[in-house]
Amino acid sequence: MFRIRVTDAMLLRDMITAISTLLDEATFDISTGGIKLRAMDPSRVAMVDFEWPKKIFDEYVCSETMKLCLNISELLKLLKRARREESVELSLEEKTNRLQITIKGKYLRTFNMPTLEPIEEEVPIPKVTFNAKAEITTEGLRQAIEDVSLVSDHVRIEIDDEKITMRATGDLMGATIELKKGDVAFLGVETKEVSIANFSLSYLVEIIKAAAATSEIATMEISTDMPIRLDFKQQQEGKLSFYLAPRIDVE
């Protein structure tokens, strides 16, 4: 038996949008305590680590641990029909193994969609020691990333004691964005050493744009030429983190 309900449809919709930046199909781990998902994108460059404890939901009924695999883009199509202030209920119909999506607002809508064969792959957390950590507003981060994406398809991120610097060099243009102590978007930094790494913007732009809708504050952690971890602070002990492997340029 599995049934969940949220009173604000946007909450669920934004979260599924964030997950959809990396995944077409997602296998959720569902237990009595809440819902978890940890998976890599098809090219195995990035990873999402997501967790929503039971208490985020307005109603949470789960009788046993199970895996639920869904086509994320199809689910998103249905969720996009829901408006703010409408409630959404997801429940698993055990006989047919189909997921029922009920949207309650001005009128009642019930959709159903098939569940897929779960992928039995345990994805571990990357073993990385991060030497620099910065906290910024998601809005500030989103703007900065959109700025650098104007000139290139990859960005060099540097964190030192005082600031985050993003640098991009394209064929014709270049960009340098600085977020430092005193800026409204900049909330704090902790560094063991100055760290620099390069990342593909096609991933960063998508991830940050979608995740920014779910959160106000982001934490960015890097080490020189190692993956980046982006954590988007969620309400009520929820978790949404992304890992992205670096680009190691020879030049």
């Binding site: 571990p124 993956p227 492997a245 670096p246």
Partner: peptide
């Protein structure tokens, strides 16, 4: 991408 982009599995 193939030459310069690392895969996340490398860090498991």
């Amino acid at each position: 991408d193939a030459l310069y982009q690392e895969r996340i599995i490398k860090y498991f």
